[in-house]
Amino acid sequence: MFSTISKAITQQNQLSSAEKTANSDDILTEIFLCLPLKSLVTFRYVSKHWLSLISHPNFSLRLHLKPRPISGLILRSKSSPKNPKYDLINLNSDPFVAPFRSFSLPPSLVVLQSCNGLLLCGSPKWCNPTCNCYIINPITKKYTELPGAFRTARGSFRAILGINLAFDPSVSSYYKVICVTAVGDHCQIQIYSSKTGDWTPSSGKFWAKCGMTFKDGVFWNGGIHWISSERTSLYFNVNEEKLQEMPMPCIRDRSSERRFMYFGESRGHLHLIEIYSLRDVIFDVYEMERDYSGWVMKYHVDLREVAIAFPEMVRSYIGLGNYYEKYSILCVVREEKDEDSYMVIHVPKKAIRYNFKDRTFKKLHDFEPGFDDTIQHNCFSAFQYTESLAHV
């Protein structure tokens, strides 16, 4: 009898502890912070209580206090223009932890940019001010449509020179979209805030530098950065709404035209790769100082061994003895330990992972059958993806 009573008391205590845990927001939050984002997406549907905890802005901020590793690269597959499909090249060591394998967008939409887990999508003719843009979170499958086009005082549409996404989940749960428009022979920046849901013009107009392109801006250090072939480029501090100059690396050979192979951000570092000849397989990876004092050489890369292992990246001109390398750089990935940092190279039909420290490399991905021997992607069409539960 006493054993039965003791057993009942024990079960009641255990039930009481479980109920206390289930009803304690602090304990549940600590547990949720230790779980993969893929699990949190599912747990949102357990109850309204869990949904409110996981969806709370403070939870998102705590979840992203530490930079999250890149999950993969989003690339458009060889699909119909009427039914665009995107695949994820998984960069995790475990293939089973990929947040998704692929996703499709509504007809007439393509991915224009990615930033810390959110995607900026719009028409392939994104420079048309009458086309609408969307912010999409592919892991939560939520989206929002941005307000419409910009009109001048006379009622005509402004030309759009570039549109870029700025989102830092470790600072705020809100994002901004930076749009550069043409106003006569000047440029002006329009800013959309997810907090207000409106577009507002930044103060002042400016001249665009020669060779400046605003299409493929990179968000880093609180600003959108654009590069040009001149000695200086531009960046826009999003919070302060200030346009400032950014130095470019010195041109090594003034008789040659510089070619930008890569421009992107990883774990709070801004990287740039440029070459001066299509035959270059030896080059440097530059990193920008956080105070914008200049670019410093971070990694030295030698791809000659890669070219030997994957001879399809070496092509010959017909009838000529000269040759050139056929490859592009999809992304530079900084890991928590610098000796683990690497870059992803696209050669015909394959993606290769190249480690900076020991110069080892391996095949990472085979592109789907049907792709020819051309290079379909570069750093501006391979979108880095980091899992996020951010609201759109």
Rank of each mutant, 00 (worst) to 15 (best):
W199T: 11
G268W: 03
I345R: 05
T386H: 07
A351S: 13
R304I: 05
I31K: 07
L88Y: 09
S266A: 04
S341N: 02
K38V: 14
K242Q: 11
L118N: 08
Y45K: 10
S266R: 03
E312S: 15
R315A: 12
A182N: 05
S3W: 09
K78D: 09
G294K: 00
T232L: 02
V41K: 10
I89G: 06
Q190W: 06
P36Q: 02
Q244I: 06
K298W: 06
L389D: 03
L65T: 12
F219M: 09
T213E: 09
G217H: 01
R151Y: 10
I224Y: 09
L91E: 10
R158L: 14
E30D: 11
C379W: 15
E325I: 03
I5W: 06
M248K: 02
S233E: 00
L105V: 06
W50E: 11
R290W: 05
P201N: 08
Y262L: 03
I54R: 11
S255V: 11
P81Y: 02
F150L: 13
S104K: 14
V344N: 02
L243V: 12
I178V: 15
G197I: 05
S39D: 12
V296D: 15
I160W: 11
F103D: 00
E145L: 13
L109K: 15
I27H: 07
H269G: 02
F367T: 11
I136E: 01
I329Y: 06
N237L: 09
S193W: 11
K66T: 11
P138T: 04
A382Y: 04
S71Q: 11
I375F: 03
V97M: 12
R258L: 07
P247D: 10
Y174Q: 03
D25P: 08
D340G: 01
K350I: 11
H225I: 01
F383A: 07
H365N: 04
K142S: 12
H56D: 13
L73Q: 06
F356W: 00
H225G: 02
F361G: 07
Y385M: 12
D338E: 15
D168M: 01
A22K: 04
T144S: 13
R252Q: 12
K195L: 13
M297S: 13
H365C: 09
I139E: 12
W226Q: 00
V281W: 09
G370M: 04
G117Y: 07
N128V: 06
G122A: 05
F2N: 14
P95C: 03
Y174S: 07
T360S: 13
H365F: 15
Q113N: 13
R304D: 07
P201E: 04
S266C: 03
E30W: 02
K357R: 12
I9W: 00
E240V: 06
F100R: 08
R151M: 11
I352L: 13
L272G: 04
N378P: 01
Y175M: 01
S233P: 00
P169D: 10
N237R: 08
R359I: 00
N116L: 02
V180E: 01
P95S: 13
I282P: 00
A382L: 07
I5Q: 07
P138G: 07
G370A: 06
F206D: 05
Q11D: 14
S328N: 15
E230M: 09
L364W: 08
L61V: 10
D340V: 04
R101N: 05
S388V: 05
S341T: 01
T200I: 14
R267A: 06
L73P: 08
H49F: 05
P36S: 05
E312N: 13
L61W: 01
G370Y: 08
V392H: 00
G319I: 07
